[in-house]
């Protein structure tokens, strides 16, 4: 089924946490991990997800990252917006401490 597209699926992003410090990371097109959501690769209509998850699993086994998974996003004027509050908070940091997390950098 790899590579098969599904028009009903929303755009998605692959994320995980780094083993070393637990920091949130996002899959880039070249298979490396980005710290920031704007750098994430966007999976359109399900294409390429399975292959990416296989490669991410290899990074789990190599003890680089933990718990990779996909989440849904929407794209508005080129900006990636997570579809859930949870992923918005992961992308930025605690909403109650704007001086902490990625949003602080």
């Amino acid at each position: 089924m790899a590579g098969k597209s599904n028009k009903t699926l929303p755009p998605q992003v692959l994320t995980a946490n780094q083993l070393f410090d637990g920091d949130v990371v996002y899959w880039r097109e070249d298979g490396t991990w980005a710290q920031d959501l704007p750098d994430a690769f966007i999976f359109e209509a399900g294409a390429g997800i399975e292959a990416a998850l296989v490669r991410a699993e290899a990074d789990v086994e190599a003890s680089k990252i933990l718990d990779p998974y996909m989440f849904a996003v929407s794209i508005d004027e080129g900006i990636i917006h997570p579809s859930s509050v949870r992923e918005t908070i992961r992308a930025k940091g605690p909403t109650v401490r704007l001086d902490l997390g990625k949003q602080a950098a």
């Binding site: 933990l66 718990d67 908070i89």
Partner: peptide
């Protein structure tokens, strides 16, 4: 764990026994 000799599945109960969780942004 850091050297990869034990997996996360094996490490998780050990870190939990020492109060270490993985949360949204960090440990």
């Amino acid at each position: 764990r850091i050297s990869g000799e034990i997996t996360e599945d094996e490490f998780k109960p050990l870190r939990l026994m020492n109060g270490l969780y993985l949360q949204l942004h960090a440990y």
